[in-house]
């Protein structure tokens, strides 16, 4: 079952002006239900456009966007409801915080949904727990927190709407390795806990390899490759031909294979590589 689908979708920015630019060009993409799917590609490959098409912030120039099997633009007046079921966390989401307290900021989305106080409270607490924001911080101003904490508050604000699909655009941008691992592992945990679907946009192949079930590679306004991390990284040469990097251990295995060693090349983590190399050593 697919959680969302784009069928024959094109999107053109500033149509009919000199600044006209095709962002995605007749694409067909399906996002499988209950998985963490990563979208990777260069700036301008169309990956951010896809995320905004999915939650109805952008209306396709042509084609159909389906969420849960329904065309989201069937009733344009109800597009706000689509934004509640497809939550979108923008890049650097901490810049959207505005409330006096962290609690109120997380509650902004649920409040807009028209939920009652009790339901809102329950959701705020749940979301805060998932991202690891303790109750002591609820009454603090979000502006007094550290960068990483601010980011987590902002992500909780979207999670509190309990979207069926959660999309995150570069959730780890600008964070140090520890902050990055913290956020990404909590997102994966959120998916498991809520049995929802997560779509994550990233520049980092290494992050994708660790946290995603499936990877969609975009290049030149079109999907270029789709599969499990092993399948995608197994085609390292093609990835490099569109200017994307593959994990360092994958490159090393490829080089060993080229030299005639009988090694697997669909390896992308240190643990996998270790098992493979030690197998080779024992054989020798």
């Amino acid at each position: 079952m697919n959680a969302a689908e784009l069928r024959g979708v094109s999107y053109v920015y500033s149509e009919h002006t000199p600044f006209c630019k095709v962002a995605v060009d007749h694409i067909d993409i399906s996002f499988e239900e209950k998985l963490v799917t990563g979208i990777i590609g260069h700036t301008g490959s169309g990956k951010s456009t896809v995320s905004q098409l999915l939650n109805g912030l952008l209306k396709p120039t042509s084609g159909v966007v389906e969420v849960d099997g329904k065309d989201i633009w069937a009733e344009p007046k109800k597009i706000r409801n689509v934004r509640f079921s497809v939550g979108l966390v923008f890049q650097y989401p901490e810049y959207q915080l505005f409330e006096e307290t962290c609690y109120k900021d997380i509650a902004f989305g649920p409040k807009n949904m028209g939920l009652d106080e009790k339901e809102i409270d329950e959701r705020v607490r749940e979301a805060a727990e998932i991202v690891g924001i303790p109750e002591e911080l609820f009454e603090k101003s979000p502006f007094d927190l550290s960068g990483g904490q601010k980011r987590r508050i902002a992500i909780a604000g979207i999670m509190a709407m309990r979207p069926k699909i959660l999309i995150l655009d570069e959730p780890a941008a600008g964070l140090d390795p520890r902050g990055r691992d913290e956020i990404l592992s909590r997102v994966v945990e959120y998916r498991k806990k809520t049995d929802s679907t997560v779509i994550m946009i990233s520049h980092s192949m290494e992050d994708m390899a660790v946290y995603c079930d499936k990877i969609l590679v975009m290049s030149d306004s079109k999907p270029y490759m789709y599969g499990t991390p092993a399948e995608v990284f197994g085609r390292a040469a093609e990835l490099e031909s569109v200017g994307l990097t593959v994990p360092q251990v994958t490159k090393m295995m490829l080089l060993l294979a080229e030299q005639g060693f009988d090694v697997r090349t669909d390896v992308y983590t240190v643990a996998q590589a270790k098992a493979e190399i030690e197998r080779l050593i024992r054989q020798a």
């Binding site: 912030l57 706000r80 934004r83 509640f84 923008f90 959207q96 979207i158």
Partner: peptide, 8 residues
């Protein structure tokens, strides 16, 4: 856009 995504 970010606030619209939160249902503003």
């Amino acid at each position: 856009n970010a606030q619209k995504a939160r249902g503003a």
